[in-house]
Nucleic acid binder design. Structure first.
Lengths: 347, 347
DNA sequence: AAACTGCATGCAAACGTTTGCATGAAAATT
DNA sequence: AATTTTCATGCAAACGTTTGCATGCAGTTT
């Protein structure tokens, strides 16, 4: 009795109709009589009929699924973006398939293959920190699968992009540090080939230069990951230098947290001896002591907009060439981990 | 030319074979000649043939997809579980569809319908805090979709379950507080109808009773959510009482963090004036000051095991009735937010 | 009465696979 | 030489939909 789900044919048989009539009834086709429609709809409801998406997908050559590739989801940053994506896609007709590349190019490649095989109708992607080549995304595009890149740029790839102005965020942070009287400002940067960390580094460098502070190579570190432990050793090296910095701009809140941790351990007062600024504004950052000064990014909106753009791109398969580029502005949030006594440098 | 993907038929035509022969060749059917096999496989490789999963799914009445329903993913807890799930399912033949219920029963219901419609082959679920009735999961089971419940129990539902011994974790934490000399131990608990928070509450109560400390109703709060801000007001109420507690056991690290925040603001010293213990051991918890004492849970393993059990259940459709119940032991991690001078209470 | 217009419905093909059964040819047995 | 066996391959149905076209039947027009 309960073998398999109820199909169009089942309904057809019970009503002495053909499957096509049942199909048309459910789709409100004008050529079907009102009574028939009503009868069909009622029975379909009673039997809890649910169209088989695979049959549909086979016929229409689409899966009604969109793929999302992110490096990881344990950080608040990506999980909040995904929440934004979900909130847009969820109510639509599409399903989401979330995939983690674990910051590995090979895994990313595998995932793209898997999603392509699945015939996803579109892809949202933030590339891994190991990805330097974007041909796998181009192959998707050649198969008419639209690609939207978010947060981490893929330079040279022609696609819709939703990014954050990391340069501006870093510039704001460092300029603030300068105005608060810091002169020896270090940078705990991230992996080298990510657009985001590159731009943060550049924002740091330009803010220094603009304010007449010479760049010091020994003040710049390229941390290899984004988690707390990745920041500990570099922070220690930095703070135990002879001529230690009086401020640190970190590539994210985790690394900034490591720096705070090390600074405290060494016996430095924050922010009197050293100012520390992070990036991301994770929810717990304001609960640290001292509360972390950081750069806020509109993560949820970023996820939502990316999803909306993809949805629109899927609907409107024309307009092949004019890709959208959306750049969100981040914002400095000053808390207790950085000095407050601003000098006027407008002159 | 590039219309649609390459199909079995395409390969068949090019090789002057029938689709069935091509299919059998690719599946290493013994009845196919070696040369034919080789020729087919080579061409399939050259054309980058990828079988259409929808055609397959239609035929075999399965989607090769498993659904995951979680209340949210912005906390480290669930995102780490999902990472564990991914690491098990990823290499398998199955795809994962992650869905967020946002702690809402209605959304959970919608998601179950959606996944059922998709013909997922199995479901991993941690119910929302608003869910009291589990018939929607039973309906899945009746459609031969195996369900594995993780972390948050569904009392009365017969299914495989992978849980954490929250009772033990809470008991450990509170007993530790007692042994360290605290006598006025409060509890910032969570929403009332979750198995996890209920068990943590019970562990708290039993640890008190066992140690001869009378329960004080005014020391017990039921916080409505799990985020920082949900804990602020209750923490303030607690700490500004006339007879304020000398220890707080919080339902999770976020709430514990709020308590620390409030305590500091009021001017209390931690742990001299008040000990605070959390639950979850989030990655940043050891970087707070004072570093948070908390109860660690094997989240990643929990995700992995849940996924493994589901996979096995899908493979082995027999053995309907003997469901597995796996309970992980959590572990108290003592850091700086709780007193250390343990007295011997063994006598 | 014959032809025509609507209208409601059914037929059959298609989407890309898999698989039981039939077919055909060559090789091995009688 | 006739039969059986073996081996390699093809045919066709099935999975659950949608959709262009054909069909049939009523009512309306000539």
């Amino acid at each position: 009795m309960k073998k398999g789900r109820v199909t169009l044919k089942d309904i057809a048989t019970k009503l002495n109709l053909s499957p096509s009539t049942v199909s048309r009834s459910l789709n409100d086709h004008p050529a079907i009589g009102e009574e028939t429609k009503k009868a069909v709809k009622e029975l379909a409801n009673a039997l809890d009929y649910q169209p088989n998406p695979m049959a549909l997908g086979l016929l229409q050559k689409k899966s009604n699924t969109i793929g999302v590739i992110v490096p990881e989801i344990t950080s608040h940053f990506f999980s909040a973006i995904i929440t934004g994506i979900q909130d847009v896609i969820g109510p639509s007709e599409y399903n989401i398939m979330i995939c983690l590349s674990n910051e590995s190019y090979e895994e990313e490649l595998t995932l793209v293959k898997k999603l392509s095989k699945m015939r996803v109708d579109g892809i949202l992607v933030s590339p891994s920190s190991a990805t330097k080549d974007f041909d796998h995304f181009r192959r998707l595009q050649n198969n008419d699968v639209p690609v939207v890149v978010f947060d981490r740029d893929c330079p040279g790839l022609e696609a819709d992009k939703v990014l954050v102005d990391d340069y501006s965020g870093a510039y704001q942070a460092v300029e603030y540090l300068v105005r608060s009287g810091c002169t020896k400002i270090a940078h705990l940067g991230g992996p080298l080939n990510l657009s985001t960390t590159k731009h943060r580094l550049q924002g740091y460098l330009d803010a220094l230069e603009k304010n007449g502070i010479p760049k010091r190579e020994e003040y710049i570190f390229h941390v290899k990951g984004f988690s707390h432990k990745d920041g500990l050793k570099p922070a220690r090296k930095l703070l135990e230098m002879e001529d230690a910095p009086d401020a640190i701009f970190a590539v994210n809140d985790n690394i900034a947290t490591s720096a705070i941790h090390v600074a405290k351990k060494i016996g430095l007062r924050i922010p009197e001896d050293i100012s520390i600024v992070g990036f991301d504004d994770e929810p717990h950052s304001s609960y640290f002591s001292p509360a972390l000064s950081t750069v806020w990014q509109p993560v949820y909106s970023l996820g939502m907009l990316s999803a909306r753009i993809l949805l629109q791109r899927i609907k409107d398969t024309s307009a092949k060439n004019d890709f959208r580029l959306e750049v969100f502005k981040p914002e400095l949030v000053v808390r207790a981990s950085s000095r407050e006594n601003l000098s006027d440098i407008s002159g």
